[in-house]
Design a protein around this nucleic acid. Sequence first.
DNA 1: TCGAGATTCCTTTTT
DNA 2: GGAATCTCGA
Length: 725
Amino acid sequence: MSDIVEKIAQLNAPQQQAVKTDSKHVVVLAGAGSGKTRVLTHRIAWLVETGQATPHGVMAVTFTNKAAREMKSRVEELLPHQPYGMWIGTFHGIAHRLLKAHWRAVNLPENFQVLDSDDQLRLVKRIIRELAVPDDLIDAKQMQWTINGYKDEGLRAQYVPETADVHLSWQRRIYVAYEALCFRSGLVDFGELLLRAHELWLNNPTVLAHYQQQFQHVLVDEFQDTNRIQYAWLRVLCGDTVGLTVVGDDDQSIYGWRGARVENIWQIQDDYPDTEMVKLEQNYRSTAVILKAANAVISNNSKRLGKDLWTEDDGGEPIRLYAAYNEQDEAGYIADSIESQLDGGVIASDVALLYRSNAQSRVLEEALIRGQIPYRIYGGVRFYERLEVRNVLAYLRLIANRNDDAAFERVINVPARGIGAKSVELLRSTARDEGCSLWDATLLLLQKGQLKGRAGGSAHAFQELIKSLDPQASESELTLSALCKVVIETTGLAQHFEKEGADKARSRLENMQEVVNASRNYEDVAGELTPLDAFLSEASLDAGEGQAAEHEDSVHLMTLHAAKGLEFDHVFIAGLEENLFPHRMSLDVREGVDEERRLCYVGITRAKKHLCLTYAESRRLYGNDNRNRPSRFIEEIPSELIEAVRPTLSVKPTFSSMGGRLAEPMPMAMGQAGFQLGSAVRHPIFGDGIILAAAGAGANTSVTVAFENEGTKELMLQYAKLTAI
DNA sequence: TCGAGATTCCTTTTT
DNA sequence: GGAATCTCGA
């Protein structure tokens, strides 16, 4: 007890207020770097230590598994004893846990599976096909998006209003069919987890009463990211008795496009008039310069709750701004900067390189590789979303649940075993007519002898294979990881991918091996679930960001979205151009630019010591060159905070001096030499430079190169010993 | 049924 | 520009 009091005494006044308040309902508006996680963890410890809540009576909700893990370990550090039974998890994880415990009450099969977005898309496509939707009226991706949108809003298919609009009514029909199919297959998508958990409360008063009794206090992190159904779920759970503390920052709301509602912050105050609001405005993370820039940018948004972040720090290096010729130059500059930072003793893992869209990462990666700088990309294609991994998991899912149609479809013909589109179509139509799963349809057709020849034999063999692997049906006493291994080998997946060519195959095999490794962690879990079920549900609810490589000393590359919640000494943000950041797509969405600006604010405030922004005057995107003006966000930063770094070039490249020429066809000889306009090159005497222009043809081809230290020179390609760098 | 060329798509995406 | 998906011929 005295321990936690001491720790809380080290917090600043508003933080202490937020931690110790007796108010039952608290909204903590916490600016970037103001210690919101600290407040949350300390409040949990305070509630427990003062006896206002038992560990069992605390629920803490986050959005990512990573955040949940982090919170758990930090709470454990604060408390003298291991807090047993505390509910710390993601919305989806907690919902999953509830549904597993009360599957009967929400009308789900005991072994229901979580459907990830790729499977979801497949199901949607299948339904669009089956319903024979008039050609191209409905796009599957968009339909998936629509369904998720409905679910985020808490809207089931039956409640979607019927309309005369052809498009909308088809959407409604597809949604209805999709729900039916999920139900039949025992599949639950991400939105469904929340929806069912909400219905669990609504339809089962005794269950709700039980949990309202159990929990004294619920705490929510990143509250600005909650959507309607998540709030509704919280609201019902908390009722009139359970305490609720939420922490959020309206300025860091960057998931509006996914249904997040900042308004939920107001909603609490409406629902609970006694709500106390605490603002945390002192920033402990960044230098004054960085903070001023962030404040200046975000002040251009009008709809704000209004916070003014301040810091005791009063200095800081200026923000560097580099205007690159093109994305190659930009990447080269960033790589060079990082290299010299590392030479100066900076640790690679204290450096982050952020960008707006994943497509930007390739060029940046290449530059880092050239500079031999260790890096690691966060996000991008997640581990459990990789093709080979998903195939292994699909086999496992089918072993766990024969009715998992999504898994069935994925692997029935992978590796190819002679059951092609025709046969699968037959299975589908039978399944539809009989209202059964694809697995049962296969059985039925085999019995009736309607699945003959090669397809029939393969289908039978396939079913036997799955059955033989099922630990429950056979006597095999395989451990989970051994089962994984067997699956990879006996199903032929390993050989299947080996055909792909050396490099790719190796990484595929490695990833599959990684599944085997990951499964080991579930072999001796205690609980109601079998190891297989535990592993599968975890796999679908966890992005699978490698835990092992976490602490490797490498530069972090990620999108701005992925960077939220993290902090780094040195931050680079690349691609500050109109149409890229703010993104083109945001420009015609209501309040789209505001959200982009918040994203920019998030990016800037990741930096503790030093921030570098870059933009390219010309950027090759999707195969053609684009010229965009520097991002408006740059102008919004007071110029006295910025130190502009131009490439060392005597003449500033303008459209007429350089861009005009960019549009001209490049002389053949240059391409043959492996160069293009904008290529970074090295000359034995003049040093490093960038090719600005080229003229002539064949042996007479000359290039204009801007050297870092020697100014701009025109060289004959034939004689100048230029090498690409 | 399979695999190679053709065509298409391309913002972010914690779950 | 590149992957991912689709289509068509063998």
